[in-house]
Design a protein around this nucleic acid. Structure first.
Length: 443
RNA sequence: GUGGCUGUAGCUCAGUUGGUUAGAGCGCCGGAUUGUGAUUCCGGAGGUCGGGGGUUCGAGACCCCUCAGCCACCCCA
């Protein structure tokens, strides 16, 4: 019989249990943090009318869009982010939602772009957004959510870099370069990566800026120091520009709020060079870098946009939001050895001695589950050594050994698979004892 | 989409200027007196050399195409 080669498409992946367990854990953390701020879950279809998706983005996103004609002759596209669907969703349901509206959306998106490490054609986004308000509070909250998220995931050393588009635009305005903002900011965003000389060269080449102008832009971007120092230094540079002054003012407010919330000073940095490639950000911008792995890039980023829904409705809906870089974070955690090596969600393993033990063990494991534990009962009465070997490889943490002897004595042996230690406890106390063991050796 | 590099057992790789039966470590499976794993000892299975075509007496090695991965550009998560 001719066989079909099992394979996956370029840029698409299978997830084995070992990869899926931390993935789900991360998603659960994100969901919990979002909910703790009152963001509500929504979902939208994977497929949209092509015009919904392609009208919005740039030529670039159009090229990356997966699209086809469906069996009813409709032109259809697969969503390439969660922001455009949010815009459509908000425009369509504005009346029922009420404003401001805070939602989170964790879902798969597709982009037909070239693959690279950490870049796939199918990947998951974990977005949260607040729409219908321009308040500084929502700007501040966005940073707080990112901060909480990273902390809950288990990172100690990370920096949220913030900036305001108005500051950059204000400076460009003052330099008479406002109409070339896009190519200039795109070049500026590469500062950390390629250095000031190359950025200047690119600015002169793509935006027609003079070397004097680029020097001034780079001077702003080169500002370093504490937030207050940077803020004080940039104010005169944007003076006279309405957007620039407003941007600096908002920046100051947001940084003050973040400080008031108790976020450690070193976790948030004012970095005037970040621009974020997207052309729709109009206000605050956020990027997040890991102290132990800065090279992996931003693991959570976002910003404020003025008019999310303008393609769909005349109603003005400003918004702010950010997105967690799930794949990058997982890659980072793997590299930093923050991921457990388990291939099973069940912490407790119960070997089967012989067929006669099956009935009693089914009862015992059912009781353990009722007590909130995750328990796997082995199905074949193989040699005990084999069963323990299996348990060890799978990553179960505790083996609960109940053989005929234990059953007769109404007790059991709890074996810690990490260190080999074991103790005898009464069956009636097993659930409690296991819980204690799990809390104790938590690594 | 453009350019560069790579592709040999489940994994990490070795394989001399193209020459006969393609190797190692780890992993996997089995065993070391029948109720205790991850350490030790013994044994074993497993590879159409990513796929297709070509050059050659002969190709894992050379050429072309294709698929996939990595890197850069682009863009971004």
């Amino acid at each position: 019989m001719p066989r079909i080669t099992p394979r996956t498409l370029k840029g698409f992946r299978d997830y084995l249990p070992q990869a899926m367990l931390p993935r789900e854990a991360l998603i659960a953390t994100a969901r919990d943090v979002y909910r703790s701020y009152g963001f509500s879950p929504i979902d939208t279809p994977a497929l949209e009318y092509l015009e919904i998706l392609s009208g919005n983005g740039s030529d670039e996103t159009d090229k990356q869009l997966y699209h086809f004609t469906d069996n009813g002759g409709r032109e259809v596209g697969m969503r390439f982010d969660l922001t455009v669907p949010l815009a459509r969703f908000a425009a369509q349901h504005a009346q029922e939602l009420g404003l401001p509206f805070k939602r989170y959306h964790i879902a798969t998106v597709w982009r037909g772009e070239n693959t690279q490490r950490g870049r796939y054609r199918e990947f998951m986004q974990c977005d949260f957004d607040t729409i219908g308000t321009e308040s500084a509070a929502s700007d501040i909250e966005t940073a707080l959510v990112i901060h909480d998220l990273l902390q809950k995931i288990g990172f100690e050393r990370f920096t949220i870099r913030v900036n305001h588009r108005g500051v950059l635009n204000g400076l460009l305005e003052n330099l008479g370069l406002a109409d070339q903002a896009l190519p200039l900011l795109r070049a500026l965003d590469k500062l950390a990566k390629i250095g000031p000389e190359k950025v200047a060269a690119e600015m002169e080449r793509t935006a027609g800026a003079t070397s004097q102008q680029t020097a001034q832009v780079l001077e702003l971007a080169a500002l370093t120091g504490s937030r207050d120092e940077v803020l004080a230094a940039l104010r005169p540079m944007v003076a006279g520009s309405e957007t620039g002054e407003a941007g600096a003012e908002r920046l100051s407010e947001v940084l003050g709020g973040i400080r008031a919330a108790g976020v450690p000073e070193e976790r948030v940095e004012l970095d005037v060079s970040i621009a974020r490639g997207l052309d729709y950000y109009t206000g605050m911008i956020y990027e997040t870098f890991l102290g132990d792995l800065p090279g992996i890039g931003s693991v959570a980023s976002g910003g404020r946009y003025d008019n999310l829904t303008e393609a769909f409705t005349s109603q003005r809906l400003p918004g702010i939001g950010a997105s967690l870089g799930l794949d990058r974070l997982l890659a980072a955690m793997e590299e930093l050895e923050m991921l457990p090596n388990a291939r099973t969600p069940a912490e407790v393993f119960v070997p089967l001695f012989n067929k006669e033990m099956l009935g009693p063990l089914l009862k015992i494991t059912t009781d353990l589950r009722a007590a909130g534990l995750r328990v796997e009962l082995y199905g074949d009465a193989k040699k005990l050594g084999k069963q323990l070997q299996y348990a060890n490889r799978r990553g179960h943490r505790i083996a609960m050994i109940v053989g005929p002897d234990e059953l007769a004595a109404d007790d059991c042996q709890l074996k810690n698979l990490a260190d080999g230690s074991s103790k005898k406890v009464a069956l009636a106390d097993a659930a409690r004892e296991i819980t204690l063991l799990l809390e104790g050796g938590d690594d």
